[in-house]
Simulated scan of single mutants.
Amino acid sequence: MTGKERDRRITDLGTLKALAHPLRSRLYRNLAVARVATASQLAEQVDEAVSLVSYHLRKLAEHGLIEAAEPRSADGRERWWQPASEGLSIRDEDFRDAPDEAAAHTAASKLFADQRMDMYRRWLEERGSWDEKWNRTASSSESTLRLTADELAELDREMLALLRRYDEQSRAAEAAGETEGRQNVAVHTYAFPFRV
């Protein structure tokens, strides 16, 4: 892990709204995957004009979600960006006190869920182009458990600890030059109560 904050907790409505813009959330996700990138690189990934992407990156920076990174090339005209923290945390308890905040949190949560589902749908459409090993190891599962709220909180902590361990291992391996065979892997989990 770097010297960055592990998970920045978003507690203010302005920052939540800044991130909940569809293009900004895509840019943030792509930047988190790349770890550092220029507006030009991100514009190519999202198929938008560099000027538009630059504008939205500045908005993310205004809210402390991303920050300037050390230049990775000799071209001093290009500005490099990186996430300002290792991850983000958005909790219901920080937005439930006012109806407008609760509505914004719900809208943001739906946007993020839609974008995650779009990633999974894209995998389903493209999996034929991946080799058999990736197809064999990719997974989708659903488990239905009967837990207390405290047990659910503990499950969440344990799952996050496991993911962080793998993230730290992969960052250390990449820093040591061990990049062969590595691909970006999305792990989406949802844990919530429901009634039948």
Score class of each variant (00 low, 15 high):
1 M>F: 06
2 T>D: 12
4 K>M: 05
5 E>A: 06
8 R>I: 07
9 R>H: 06
17 K>V: 09
19 L>T: 07
19 L>P: 04
21 H>R: 10
23 L>N: 02
24 R>H: 03
27 L>N: 02
31 L>T: 02
37 A>E: 04
37 A>K: 02
39 A>G: 15
39 A>H: 01
41 Q>N: 04
45 Q>M: 12
55 Y>R: 13
57 L>A: 11
61 A>V: 00
62 E>G: 04
65 L>I: 02
66 I>K: 14
68 A>Y: 02
69 A>K: 03
76 G>M: 05
79 R>Q: 15
83 P>V: 12
83 P>S: 01
86 E>F: 00
87 G>Q: 02
92 D>M: 06
92 D>C: 04
95 F>C: 03
97 D>I: 02
97 D>P: 00
98 A>V: 01
101 E>P: 00
109 S>V: 06
111 L>A: 03
113 A>M: 11
114 D>P: 04
116 R>Q: 13
117 M>K: 15
124 L>Q: 14
128 G>T: 07
128 G>H: 12
129 S>N: 05
131 D>I: 01
132 E>K: 08
133 K>A: 12
133 K>L: 09
135 N>Y: 02
139 S>R: 15
140 S>A: 13
141 S>F: 11
143 S>R: 06
143 S>E: 11
146 R>S: 13
148 T>Q: 07
152 L>P: 01
155 L>R: 08
159 M>N: 09
160 L>T: 06
170 S>P: 00
171 R>I: 07
173 A>N: 10
173 A>H: 08
175 A>E: 14
175 A>N: 01
176 A>G: 04
176 A>Q: 09
179 T>E: 14
180 E>Y: 01
185 V>R: 11
188 H>D: 14
192 F>R: 14
196 V>Q: 12
